[in-house]
Nucleic acid binder design. Structure first.
Lengths: 226, 226
DNA sequence: ACTGTTGTTATTGGATCCAAAGTAAAGACT
DNA sequence: AGTCTTTACTTTGGATCCAATAACAACAGT
């Protein structure tokens, strides 16, 4: 995974995810190699990787096709995300933070714990929520939700958690939408509380429900799925 | 994914999973290419694939290493399996069998339904269990447990469900052990009942518990994890 | 007019060659 | 004697060449 290779892979992935290659479009090794000014060899490697990630599909001898995602695909992807993130939340509650999670994140966890002790969390006064949420910017809950903790757990265990990562849904986009929602804020607080108290089952249940907001309340979504 | 390529990949995967390459052992492209009498190119492709599957690990410029799995890794892998299989069971209960599941499997589902209607299932007389289980050989429940249905759902949705597949735990081995257990048989019946009735939440809960038998009752395991 | 067959062409798969990079070992200097 | 530096070698990454194969088109026969 050289710099060139990584660059090619991520650039290609970015282009596909952002729709610069339309779904169903055929992608030939030759054409891509020419466009990116590399030989066919790294392109072939990238194609295989993207195939395993589910972004590309073999089209027999006619090369690869950009995956087409049906509504059912998206639905299923969200379901998979939700169970994996729920699992991450439970493991976090039961086993604590894995060592691979960075110091910055730990700082925010402590911040969250402080807020919790000071009684800011679960404050019924809605005016406090924005304040809490600003403190929560980049906190552990958001991190869980955006897959950071799931990734950390995965990396720590060297597990192919990639399923959560390679799914087409752009978690950041969704998160950005959700962060505006008080419902999501409420979720965050509940989840953080459960995790802090080591209540694994509750943390998992809440996180799963949180991850499914988009399905439960489609009318709340702005841009929706990307 | 040529015949040669597929053969190389699956042969290599088999060798690693069966421990012919010991964990931590360094695998060079050159050596493997020589051993399998192919050039380095297909070996490189296979290595990348196996890396993504989590069986190999990069060792910088010193090639690839066979993944070492700690007890914690195995624990985490089983947890991931359990939530994914639980999800598969729930989706199955809620949405029915995806079209991609073969006719043979559908036949066995019908067989199971018949047994259910005839009142064989949830029979408290333990003597009936073996009879039921023989009818259940290759049934949908076993299929769910061994990842067939999860894979089918994944394929149907073109989802990278591969996480469940690529985990080092040899599901067949485990299943073989568990099939001897009356506890597992009991699970099978309960799960099938829940799926048949469309009780998604219950199906998921039961399937997750079933998938965790190995962790809950380690003393029941024969050869254990592979 | 339609279908089956055959030949050409486009495209992927594998092999080999070359370059780059990192590791390891050996030697020299403190 | 220990450590730093330099050099040589091992090993991966990329490019190009060749072979195999599948798709597509054209042509002929019914």
């Amino acid at each position: 995974m050289n710099d060139n290779d990584k660059s090619l892979l991520s650039r290609l992935r970015k282009l596909i995810r952002e729709g610069h290659y339309s779904p169903g479009e055929r992608l030939g090794e030759e054409a891509v190699a020419e466009r990116f000014e590399v030989s066919r060899t790294p392109v072939r490697l990238a194609f295989r990787t993207l195939e395993q990630e589910g972004l590309l599909q073999r089209a027999g001898k006619r090369g690869f096709m950009v995956r087409e995602f049906t509504e059912s695909d998206v639905h299923c992807a969200v379901e998979v995300r939700s169970v994996l993130e729920g699992l991450a939340a439970r493991l976090l509650a039961e086993q604590g933070m894995p060592a691979s999670v960075g110091e910055e994140l730990k700082h925010w966890i402590q911040t969250g714990r402080d807020l919790l002790e000071k009684g800011y969390l679960l404050e019924t006064d809605i005016n406090h929520w924005s304040e809490i949420n600003s403190h929560f910017h980049g906190t552990i809950i958001h991190a869980i939700g955006s897959g950071v903790v799931a990734d950390a757990i995965a990396r720590n265990n060297h597990l192919p958690f990639a399923a959560a990562d390679s799914i087409i849904i752009d978690g950041d986009n969704l998160t950005r939408e959700f962060k505006k929602l008080q419902l999501a804020q409420f979720h965050h607080e509940l989840i953080f509380q459960a995790v802090s108290r080591g209540e694994g089952a509750r943390a998992e249940m809440l996180m799963r429900e949180h991850a499914l907001i988009g399905l439960r309340y489609p009318e709340l979504l702005g841009s929706g799925y990307s």
